[in-house]
Amino acid sequence: MVDVSSPQSKSRPEALPDRQSDDLRDVARAHRPIPKGKVLLWVVVLLFAADFARAVGTNENFGWPVVAEFFFNRTVLEGLWVTIWLAVVSMVLGVMLGLPLAIARMSNDPLAKSISGLFVWFFRGTPLLVQLILWYNLSFLFPEISLSIPFGPSLAAWNANDLITPITAAIIGLALNEAAYMAEIIRGGLLSVERGQKETAEAFGMKPMRALWRVVIPQAMRSIVPPSGNQFISMIKATSLVSVIAMADLLYSVQSIYNRNFEVIPLLMVAVIWYLLIVSVLSAIQSRIERYYARGDQQRVVFDNPETVTTQEEAPL
């Protein structure tokens, strides 16, 4: 029940009818009128969406039976597998290289700083397609690749043609390009961690690398994960560029099929649906990772939205 504050009841002597109307004013019993405009907008949007779905679904030019026929086609699945592992391997290598690049770029050492800066400048500054073609044709530029002391004798040498296959060219091209972007993402994340944290870790006798691993990076992950997810999703799609160097990824596989049966659109739809499926799975994984790294932040979540807390605590990961 509502507690009527004493000064108010004093100022109004006829307390009884007032108390009744005060009860009526209790916001706990309020009705919220349905927002008509909003409902109308929903109806209109849903109608358009349904109509569009119908138009796409019943349009014979999309060739849905063909899509169904080729969706689990062996060549398509093999291409899908190539796309996935190529993206994963390139991303892992990209992160492994991007992290030291980011640290080097933030260091006070002019040599490390400029090497890292130069790397990012080059690999971010040139089109990925050109980089892939250059790697693939490396044997044209350097017929022999040798490990040697600068200006000195050679220790080991390989024929570039043997070394550079479509697979190695694709991995090197994608990973180096990814490393340049990841370096910048990671650097941004490291910069977002309050300076006092590193200082505190060092004040307690942690060596700089340990302070980085235990204190700075876990906090930086909060701002590293969302753009990295973004980056990984672009990477999944960027793998389709390797079809130019005859690497049989998802896109290349569907191309090879429609070059034979001329069902271009249905087979592209097969690829589109697979790409969307991968990306959906990745987004779900990303949000779990984000929740994990937000674990120290539960208090803030409690204030913002009490419902999210339960899911927060359930997420084991």
Binding site: G196, Q197, E199, T200, A201, E202, A203, F204, G205, M206, K207, P208, V215, P218, Q219, Y293, R295, G296, D297
Partner: peptide, 23 residues
């Protein structure tokens, strides 16, 4: 930096802004 870290490990410090590790 390793030797400095060892020297620092003999001291404990309490900061104005607490600086607990939030994660």
């Amino acid at each position: 930096s390793a030797a400095i870290a060892r020297q620092r490990s003999k001291m404990g410090m309490v900061f104005q802004s607490f600086n607990l590790f939030p994660h």
